[in-house]
């Protein structure tokens, strides 16, 4: 396909005949005077925005995380919970559900799980977004996708105000999943309905305030 590569690049260059030869990309000025954030009060904003898009938020004191996870699992009747291999064992110490560490489970095994517990990389307050980067306590992408209930632990020090701060902190070489509430669709009469293919329930455990 080299032929088409050269042909397309040739067409692009011909199309840009009006651009001065010595102009470099950076010569096209980009005004960057937009705000880096629109809130200065990240934790309450995050809670508000998560709830607005139908996530359930629990503010949990440090030291009470295991009990909170156990309680949520009980309330949701989660019998089997998958967790990433490096999830701190204390987190699931109190639950009576059977906890399965992901060691490369097949999709059908994942599909048999009722819920998943993960941490996160960053949370964006003003959009109510939690970002997973497959790093510490998050595991691979499939485990937070297939089970229907996602319990996500967010530490207060992981919360940033706005999108620009999050983009700056994240490493694009990791696969990233930005999650804002449970899965949803507006495809029927633009009426928003929560719960389609991705987890239908997102419960956020906010710790370390």
């Amino acid at each position: 396909m080299t032929g088409s590569r050269e042909r397309i690049l040739g067409r692009v260059r011909a199309a840009l005949a009006d651009v001065p030869r010595d102009e470099r990309p950076d010569d096209v000025a980009v005004p960057r005077d937009y705000a880096s954030a629109h809130t200065g009060d990240p934790i309450p904003t995050l809670v508000d925005r998560l709830e607005d898009y139908k996530a359930i938020v629990h503010r949990v004191a440090t030291g009470e995380l295991a009990e909170a996870i156990a309680e949520t699992a009980r309330r949701r009747s989660l019998a089997r919970i998958v967790v990433p291999p490096d999830l701190p064992t204390e987190w699931t110490a109190a639950t009576s559900a059977s906890v399965v560490r992901d060691d490369g489970l097949a999709v059908d095994q994942l599909d048999a799980m009722d819920g998943v517990v993960t941490g996160c990389a960053v949370a964006v307050a003003e959009t109510g977004t939690i970002v997973l980067d497959t790093g510490a306590a998050q595991g691979r992408r499939a485990i937070s996708l297939i089970p229907d209930v996602h319990l996500c632990v967010v530490r207060a020090d992981q919360v940033v105000n706005g999108v620009p701060e999050a983009v700056a902190q994240l490493d694009p070489h990791q696969p990233l999943t930005w999650i804002s509430g449970p899965s949803a669709t507006s495809d029927i009469e633009l009426d928003r309905v929560e719960g389609v293919h991705g987890p239908r329930i997102l419960e956020v455990l906010l710790t370390g305030e």
């Binding site: 109510g128 977004t129 696969p175 999943t177 804002s180 899965s183």
Partner: peptide
Amino acid sequence: TGERMNPYTSTWTGPAEGDG
């Protein structure tokens, strides 16, 4: 969609080892 953020955004840079 008129949302602050859509429910899911995925970004990926090439295939990831053991994931996807």
